[in-house]
Computed example of a mutant assay.
Amino acid sequence: MSWWGKLIGGGFGFMLGGPLGALMGMAAGHQFDKGLNAVDLEPGNTERVQLAFFTAIFSVMGYLAKADGTVSRSEIQMAENIMGQMNLDANQRKTAIELFNQGKQANFPLNEILQQFKTECHRRTNLLQMFLEILIATAYADNHLDNTERSALLDIAQQVGFSAAQLDQLINMVGAQQQYSHQSAQTSPQSSLKQAYAVLGVDNEISDSALKKTYRRLMSQHHPDKLVAKGLPEEMIKLANQKTAEIKSAYDQIKNSRK
């Protein structure tokens, strides 16, 4: 049974406990009409982490969208796109929307949510990085990252264990990935190649061996099966696949340009 099946069948949102469990309990309370059964999943269990990720990502996405004072149509569309890529059923989608709306509330307990989420992830750095990358993409949904959003992202990043320098690198890479994936036929070869280097977070003076090493590291960090095994909800595997496709495309373009 999947993490969602356990949630519906056993009231797992309540079993998770803490602010994440309370948040999921409010968001999916309508799912628990049949009462609660014991669902004993130890901290670190993959399905427990998947539930924590689902709860944290959509609620913090809502918080971030409201960070600049206004939730833009682009940010709502980004959240809806992610839900669409996840192929959520009606109940899952309703729960995700409710989590997003809870994140927009003035009393949203961001610090407590992030503290528990980091603890639930048990030092799964690649999973935490994916969490940040999705949030950065949400902030970039309107093709602009203002100072308020950057400040909110820095606060979130530091609370889950990333430095300001690491966040800046992720922001640059995610921004480049979005430009690269949406480039048009009118994009010049020079501009496209420049974006390809930015997707990998390197400059055009990098050696071939260092380039290959960077490529392999990025592919390993975003490998869908590895991320799901660490706690990425199975429904988000399309996001990971998209990431690896963009990384591979950029690497192939750079490699071909060096022949």
Rank of each mutant, 00 (worst) to 15 (best):
L114T: 08
T148Y: 14
G44Y: 09
A38E: 12
L232M: 11
A198C: 04
Q50R: 09
I8H: 13
L135P: 02
K34W: 15
A198N: 07
D146Q: 08
R73Q: 15
H222N: 15
A185F: 14
N45V: 07
E149S: 05
T70F: 15
G17Y: 06
M61W: 12
G201H: 00
D142Q: 10
G9E: 09
I82Q: 13
A56W: 00
S72V: 06
F32H: 09
S72Q: 12
A240H: 02
E120S: 00
L170A: 12
D155H: 07
Y63T: 00
C121I: 01
P189S: 07
S192L: 07
E246S: 02
F54V: 00
L193A: 05
H122G: 09
L128F: 14
G84Q: 09
L170R: 14
N172E: 13
F131Y: 08
Q169S: 01
L200D: 00
F58V: 05
H122S: 10
F58Q: 00
M236D: 01
G201P: 02
G103Q: 09
D203R: 01
I113H: 13
V199Y: 08
S249I: 01
A38P: 04
Y215I: 04
N107H: 14
Q102V: 08
I76E: 15
P43C: 13
F100I: 01
T214I: 00
Q116N: 07
Q129T: 12
G69I: 05
A106H: 15
I247V: 10
G44I: 07
S220G: 05
N37W: 11
L232Y: 09
L232A: 11
S181T: 14
K230P: 06
S188Y: 05
G35L: 10
Q102N: 11
E98C: 02
S184N: 06
F14G: 12
F14Y: 13
I97E: 13
R150A: 12
Y251E: 01
T95V: 08
Q166M: 13
A65S: 02
Q102T: 10
Q85A: 13
Q92W: 01
K248M: 02
K243Q: 08
L135I: 04
Q115I: 08
A250S: 05
D252Y: 04
L127H: 02
Y63D: 03
T244C: 00
Q195T: 03
L193R: 04
L154E: 08
A67T: 05
S163M: 03
G29C: 10
L193T: 07
H30V: 12
Q190I: 08
T119F: 03
F14E: 07
L132K: 10
N111C: 15
E235S: 13
P109G: 10
E234C: 12
K226L: 09
T244Q: 03
T214R: 13
F32N: 05
A240R: 00
N45D: 14
H182T: 14
S249Q: 11
L41Q: 07
A250L: 01
S192H: 10
N204C: 08
L218M: 02
K118L: 03
K212Y: 04
Q77D: 14
G21F: 08
D68G: 06
G69E: 12
F53W: 00
A56C: 01
G175S: 04
V202L: 04
S59W: 03
N107R: 12
I247K: 11
D168M: 10
S188N: 06
Q92F: 03
W3V: 03
D89H: 05
L64G: 01
V160P: 04
D68V: 06
T125Q: 15
F108N: 10
F117D: 03
Q115T: 11
N91G: 12
L232E: 10
